[in-house]
Simulated scan of single mutants.
Amino acid sequence: MQNLVLFSSKDRDALLNTRKGESKFGEHVQLLTNLNNIYEDISNLDVDHVIFGIAEDIGVYANHGKTGAYRAWEASINFLLNIQSNSFTKAKRVLILGYLDYSNACEIVKQEPTKKSISKARQLVESIDKDVTFLVSSIVKAGKTPIIIGGGHNNAYGNIKGLSLAKNDLVNAVNFDAHTDFRPEEGRHSGNGFSYAYAEGFLKNYFVFGVHENYTSEKLFKTLKKIKSIKYNTYESMAVRNELDFNSEMERALNFVSGKHFGLEIDCDAIENIPSSAQTPSGFSVKDARQFVHYFGQHKNVGYLHICEAAPRKKSMQKVGKLISYLITDFIRANDH
């Protein structure tokens, strides 16, 4: 894959901060020294989880959003490598594959949005879709569970399609998100990954957890209500009006998606005060997000974890890196069957 940059021992050593008497996560993870056939190379490794990043925010730009999501991989890998390696973190069962690099294509996001630049960005997203689909499908076929660090939520499409192709069946998804990302099929961007996956026959049941009522149109709510294979709840119904219980709603969502293999999607837009493409001052707590990942990560049919839309600046790299590291390790612990 021309856009895949393998994570090397040299990369790891440059980021590791070793300390006498301690053992760091990065000292024990597995790496690939070269790549011939990704399916065969990964199949032969004694690991459970394969972590890779998608360094892009083209899909966010194509959706007229706030860019910066390309930095999430850099922030995450730096902090993940330097957590403690112990019986809880299971570093030896993890392969850090590398990241999909779109630095050249990402030059487009520096332009003032025009009809022409948005159209071009949406075409670029289609090429990113192909890479993500191939990578996720190859990892799942090899019997491993992908952990994907975005990037924009446009990459949900490639995740879902990749899982579906690997399983040769429709799959389900649960999305912890302030937005439905079920916008019209007007050209690929971060706001319509699920609608495209549904329209093209890869996605069956879809549950959106925590939609913000202020940022979802009446037209979209009506669309969701018409489709029996889509369920949702709102943040306000749980956290403001206390009409619904968080834990009971997680159970309802799991019952809706767990009959088939399903994707676990975490959009950082849903977490309060986390730098993201649509940062919110009112949202779920980090604790809520971690409990959500743990709850769904335990199920035997969870097909992958995708954490997306975090958009750290220089001053917030630590905050974002630590958050994503927590979510990754929560999933690894829960997913240890």
Score class of each variant (00 low, 15 high):
142 A>N: 08
142 A>P: 06
143 G>Q: 10
144 K>T: 05
146 P>W: 06
146 P>L: 07
147 I>M: 08
147 I>Y: 11
148 I>K: 09
148 I>Q: 10
149 I>A: 12
149 I>V: 15
149 I>Q: 12
149 I>P: 12
150 G>M: 07
150 G>V: 03
151 G>V: 13
151 G>Q: 12
152 G>N: 12
152 G>M: 09
152 G>Q: 07
153 H>A: 05
153 H>T: 06
155 N>K: 11
155 N>Q: 14
155 N>D: 13
155 N>W: 06
155 N>F: 13
155 N>M: 14
155 N>G: 09
156 A>G: 14
156 A>V: 13
157 Y>A: 00
157 Y>E: 02
157 Y>R: 01
158 G>A: 02
158 G>C: 06
159 N>A: 05
159 N>D: 13
159 N>T: 01
160 I>V: 15
160 I>N: 00
161 K>D: 02
162 G>M: 00
163 L>S: 03
163 L>A: 05
163 L>N: 01
164 S>H: 03
164 S>Y: 01
165 L>K: 06
165 L>I: 04
165 L>S: 03
165 L>C: 00
166 A>I: 01
166 A>Q: 01
167 K>R: 13
167 K>W: 01
167 K>I: 00
168 N>F: 03
168 N>A: 08
169 D>Q: 07
169 D>P: 01
169 D>E: 13
169 D>M: 00
170 L>P: 01
170 L>I: 09
170 L>Q: 12
171 V>Y: 01
171 V>N: 00
171 V>I: 15
171 V>D: 04
172 N>E: 02
172 N>H: 10
172 N>K: 01
173 A>H: 02
173 A>F: 00
174 V>K: 05
175 N>C: 04
175 N>W: 03
175 N>V: 03
175 N>T: 11
175 N>F: 06
176 F>C: 05
176 F>I: 04
177 D>A: 11
177 D>K: 07
178 A>L: 08
178 A>T: 10
179 H>E: 11
179 H>Y: 14
180 T>R: 05
180 T>K: 00
181 D>I: 12
181 D>S: 07
181 D>F: 06
181 D>V: 07
182 F>T: 09
183 R>H: 15
183 R>Y: 15
183 R>D: 10
183 R>V: 11
183 R>G: 13
184 P>R: 12
185 E>T: 14
185 E>M: 14
186 E>N: 14
186 E>I: 15
186 E>G: 08
187 G>C: 09
189 H>P: 03
189 H>Q: 08
189 H>D: 10
190 S>F: 08
191 G>T: 13
191 G>I: 10
192 N>Y: 10
192 N>D: 10
192 N>Q: 11
192 N>G: 09
193 G>F: 01
193 G>D: 05
194 F>D: 09
194 F>K: 07
194 F>G: 06
195 S>C: 13
195 S>W: 06
195 S>E: 14
196 Y>G: 06
196 Y>S: 07
197 A>Y: 01
197 A>R: 04
197 A>N: 04
198 Y>S: 15
199 A>L: 06
199 A>Y: 09
200 E>T: 12
200 E>M: 09
200 E>R: 14
200 E>F: 03
201 G>R: 03
201 G>I: 05
201 G>H: 01
203 L>P: 02
203 L>T: 02
203 L>G: 02
205 N>L: 09
205 N>S: 11
206 Y>C: 04
208 V>W: 00
208 V>F: 08
209 F>V: 11
209 F>K: 04
209 F>T: 08
